[in-house]
Design a protein around this nucleic acid. Structure first.
Lengths: 186, 186
DNA sequence: GGCTACATGTAAGCGGTTACATGATTTA
DNA sequence: TAAATCATGTAACCGCTTACATGTAGCC
């Protein structure tokens, strides 16, 4: 079973949800570290049901709109807790097209490289600002309750990652600005 | 055409190479920001040849061992330069199983969460040390030549990313150690 | 002679995205 | 009544990994 399984099991461990609600969670709360489209979620819920890890009850909204509300079975809860306690080996560094581009940018005029670096910096700053706005809900205090603390920690991780990215890009810009404007042709 | 195309085109823009040599580059130099297995490289080289972006000459080692040495065509060089100057939109944050696990770890005893955090910290510290060893070849000085500077910048990026990851994990550990040992059951 | 590295390919399968497809409910 | 949102599914495709498959060359 892939990680998506445990992302869904984890969300259902908090409360029972429909496929549509899971999709919304992937778009909002989990967005910084996992995502899934509905075309992946619905078949996965079918598999999990067949595997006996979740079960659903059908609700009706209005007169005809059906929806399936999923909840963990005891087996599902056990599978989730087993995963939750596991130590995972770090995956290889994720692919990064911008770093690939920067690596090959030695044959570009410094001014063109600066364009790329500044564009990247703007994008990372925008994401950082967005994350910092999210952080305001904590009112500058570290939560004491365990679940709220975990929310806080993953958000802090995203913020620190973006801060590091911005600091790196600023350094790249400074070093490129210092260059003599004579690019080396390959 | 996907990013792999331009990774290969970029490597061939530096010098002509065989599929096997490309594979070795992905395992070493490019490892921090891109990778590809030989099972992906060889078919891609066939496609690029058919598309007229690369061409090859067959060499023979010993008496029978054939190998194809690939080089950029003018069209390939043009395609590479076009990609190199393009501004790319930031991709969504990459998936991260550890952060997913941490997010759901509110129902774990703090001592168990500490285990996971410390394990992760050790792994990131090991990677950081490895990167810092790589950095020694620059003898503490920022290179002036453009291609060497780009090498330096991507390595610096990897180092700063790992430093940020370690700092974050240390903060997570400190905050978890401060907790009262009463986990909230979901 | 045996092991490792060199060298090149193909096939099956997986996780994921995009697109196709349908219909109900709510809100402007 | 039109548009947005709710709600659930399937199908085609893509990038990538793992495994299958084969053979040569160099070294101990």
């Amino acid at each position: 079973m892939g990680t998506l399984t445990y992302a869904i099991l984890g969300l259902l461990s908090q409360q029972s949800r429909t496929g549509y609600e899971l999709k919304k969670e992937f778009e909002s709360t989990l967005n910084e570290f996992w995502s899934a489209k509905h075309s992946q979620i619905y078949p996965e819920l079918s598999r999990l049901t067949e595997a006996g890890l979740v079960e659903y009850t059908t609700e009706i909204t209005g007169t005809a709109l059906e929806r399936k509300r999923y909840a963990l079975t005891p087996a599902g809860k056990a599978a989730f807790y087993a995963w939750l306690e596991q130590r995972h080996k770090m995956p290889p560094t994720p692919k990064d097209e911008f770093r690939l581009q920067l690596f090959f940018s030695g044959c570009l005029e410094p001014a063109r490289r600066l364009d790329l670096l500044r564009d990247q910096l703007h994008q990372h700053r925008a994401r950082l600002e967005h994350l910092q706005k999210n952080q305001e809900k904590f009112h500058g205090a570290v939560p004491e309750e365990a679940n709220a603390l975990c929310d806080y920690l993953v958000l802090l991780g995203a913020i620190m990652r973006e801060e590091a990215a911005c600091a790196w890009l600023e350094r790249c810009i400074a070093l490129t600005e210092d260059m003599q404007p004579n690019p080396s042709e390959p």
